[in-house]
Amino acid sequence: MWAIETRNLRKVFRPLLGGKPLTAVDNLNLQVPAGTVFGFLGPNGAGKTTTIQILIGNVYPTAGEAFVLGHRAGALAAKRKLGFLPEKFQFHDFLTAEEFLRMHGRLAKMDGATLRKRIDEVLELVGLSERRRSKIREFSKGMQQRIGLAQAILHDPDLVILDEPTSALDPLGRRRVREVVQYLKERGKTVFLNSHLLSEVELSCDQVAIINKGRVVKQGVLEDLLVNRSIVSIELQQATPQVLEAMAKVAQRVHPIDERRVTAEVAHEDDVPQLARAIIEAGGALMGLQAHRETLEDLFIQTVEGESK
């Protein structure tokens, strides 16, 4: 079963007073399996936020369909099982943390006893138990983000959509968010994570989708997408055309940076020694070589730049 499914989803914003229509989402097809931690990635303006707004029912699609936990996006049945942490928010800061969560629990139609129990649990989980009677206006930006996370998971939703959950957090706060994501995963929940912090996504997610210009350009299990490919940073005395040609025979891609430095992508870690041999056999003076496995950031940049060309 898909926790989220979109079929040819499209959203065009038409300015009221004329002007050029803006296509934010363009035939987006996305399948998010239930029970996974799913990273939703893309450059600024790729259509991520608009897609999320459609999924939570805030924005109506121009065409296509979107389903959340088997219900049409925006339907009350879908919203009952959905938790959401917005990227840009302003909470009612005159409330205390406890009052704020009680308000959200009542909006989520939770009964009194369950709500009291869950408030204790989620405050503990996000590390704000001791500040439960503090007004939100007294919270730091990071603490506000954590109380936002608490309201998103308060009603024990099956799907949690987190829009840039770590943007205002210090490393400790980020680790706590990772722990919360892990806690949700262990309980079989689906987490849909939109973040620009790709290292965070890499640490937390099972699957990712990269979107660009409103379309999905790459989607899959993270381990499959980053299969054994290595990025090799090479320093030569001089990157001659003969050396570059020899490297291209072994590597999938060769990017000269300047006269001395070259980056190469090889399909497998085992190809790195062969690449070094090829450089030397072509008469290149190898000054330095450092190989690392392809990261999500490498994949992201390569995918987005490849799309843009």
Partner: peptide, 14 residues
């Protein structure tokens, strides 16, 4: 615009 409704609208209310 201020973001006050961002966390309220996704709640199961019409």
């Amino acid at each position: 615009e201020r973001g006050y409704l961002a966390a309220i609208l996704p709640r199961p209310i019409h």
